[in-house]
Design a protein around this nucleic acid. Sequence first.
DNA 1: TACATTTGCTTAACAGTGTTAGATTATTTT
DNA 2: AAAATAATCTAACACTGTTAAGCAAATGTA
Lengths: 199, 199
Amino acid sequence: MGSKERIQRQKEDTRKSILDAALQIVKQEGWAAFSMRKIADVIEYTAPIIYEYFSNKEGILFELTRLGYMHLGVKVKAARDSKEDPEEQLEAMWLAYWDFAFEEKEFYQLMYGVQVNCCELYTKMPEAEYTTDLFYDAIEKLLTKQPVSEDTSCLKYYTFWSLIHGLVSINLVQKGANDEINQQILRSAIKAIIKTIND
Amino acid sequence: MGSKERIQRQKEDTRKSILDAALQIVKQEGWAAFSMRKIADVIEYTAPIIYEYFSNKEGILFELTRLGYMHLGVKVKAARDSKEDPEEQLEAMWLAYWDFAFEEKEFYQLMYGVQVNCCELYTKMPEAEYTTDLFYDAIEKLLTKQPVSEDTSCLKYYTFWSLIHGLVSINLVQKGANDEINQQILRSAIKAIIKTIND
DNA sequence: TACATTTGCTTAACAGTGTTAGATTATTTT
DNA sequence: AAAATAATCTAACACTGTTAAGCAAATGTA
């Protein structure tokens, strides 16, 4: 017969088309627009059909997350294999990670819990600027070169902030936190950045 | 009369009670449970009343964000004022920022777009581990001390990852990205961490 | 005091959402 | 052709944010 295999193939096709549709919607309209009924519209079925391929909405998100990690893995490996020197390899790998985050923005958001639709960073809010200014002032006190260039303090501020915000985010999203390692990273990295603040 | 003022005061009370209720719900059940009708339940009104105090759901989120930044500002300033030495000040400030993130987890999530309910970091996913392993291998190649301690490579990996993930998150959430500064932070920080990898 | 107006608040509704159960149609097997 | 099975849809439930209409109580005016 072979019709079993044909049906099997069709099923896999629809499953893939669900994921494709989901991705298409998210890339066009963002994560807020992601809905079962919209996916159904795109694949030209009704919503309940999707539940024969995925247990629920989160099932689709899980699968997309998996795909995202696979893409990332390929890119990072390719970056490594493009260099010989271990130092260059490591740098290339992190740069590949960086590029992935923006080329596959939607994947990255899903994989690492980075929102963007709602609640943007309101950096123009005076209440937000207050804290930023405190840090800028503190950093500029440590800069010996006078006059202090705006670029330098900005660079240092974002280096600090990125490190700490990254560490915080990872810990907030990831449950199993090792507090000892966190403190070690925090303190040693802060001291390291402060030490090189006048380089 | 003075009744105008009493009414004014009552209005401010309800406004505050809306924010309190919102915060209470989020702290008890997480951001996913945050809804207008639930707030209404808590303040013992019906949902449409809320729209006389806030233009919509985002208006409440905006106000909570503002409050969050105010809390953070107070904490960071207190940390600064607790020290004399500029280096110690800066370190204390970032540690205060760190503490705020976990003490006021819900605020931090809102302020910086850190999801946690849906789509957790699936670090136990084999597809995710693949990339992690690539980085661990690359880092361990650079560690001269043999045998390589698990703690050391872990520390280095998380330092790298935090920095880059933080920088990525900030850029994804915050629109106005300065690509030049990003590249500068990225490359110089990667090189700096690599340089101190055997300290 | 009697009427008119404003205010406070609620009910009802609309258009969405995820998800499930039951009915219907189409396909395959007997 | 009839029976059994698979594929698909319709309808519904319980939610969501948000708006419009209505009611009832408090207030202002004559």
